[in-house]
Computed example of a mutant assay.
Amino acid sequence: MAIEVSDAPEAKRYEARVDGESENAGIAQYIRTPELIAFVHTEVGPAYEGRGVGSALARTALDEARAAKLRVLATCPFFAGWIARHPDYQDLLYQSRSKVSD
C-alpha cells in the first residue's frame, strides 16, 4: 500500500491518499503562522485505520515543519501522542517563552 501525503494550504490541511485513489484516506488540519504550525485535528477514514495513514500524515507534516523552521503546537491528541512516541521530533515542539511569576 503506497501512501502519498501532500499539503493543501488552501484547505489548511495535509491530505493522505492511498494507492493513487482520489478520495482522501486521512487529513491533518492545521493553523499556520510564519513561525508556528498548530495541528488541531487528525482524521483517518475507517477503512484505513491501523494501516499507517496517520503516521504518514504526522511524519510528512513534521518533516516539512522542520524544513520550514517552524515550531509545532500539537493540540490534536493524535499528533501529541505521535510526537511523544517519536523523540526525534520533540525538538520541534513550541515552548512558551513567558514565565509565570509566583
Rank of each mutant, 00 (worst) to 15 (best):
E4D: 13
V5E: 08
P9I: 04
R13P: 01
E15L: 10
D19G: 06
E21D: 02
S22I: 02
E23H: 10
E23Q: 12
E23N: 13
Q29C: 03
Q29S: 06
R32P: 02
P34D: 14
E35L: 07
L36W: 01
L36Q: 10
I37H: 00
F39C: 04
V40E: 11
T42F: 00
G45W: 00
G45T: 08
P46S: 15
P46N: 15
P46W: 06
P46C: 13
A47F: 04
A47E: 14
E49L: 06
G50A: 07
G50I: 02
R51P: 03
V53N: 04
S55M: 05
S55V: 09
L57Y: 07
L57P: 14
L57V: 06
R59M: 04
T60G: 12
E64R: 09
A65L: 07
R66F: 06
K69P: 03
R71L: 10
A74S: 07
A74W: 00
P77S: 14
F78V: 08
A80G: 13
A80V: 07
A80M: 13
G81S: 14
I83E: 02
A84I: 12
A84R: 14
R85M: 06
H86I: 01
P87S: 11
D88M: 05
Y89K: 10
Y89E: 04
Q90M: 09
D91Q: 11
D91W: 12
D91C: 01
L92S: 00
L92H: 09
Y94K: 15
Y94D: 03
Q95C: 05
R97W: 08
S101K: 13
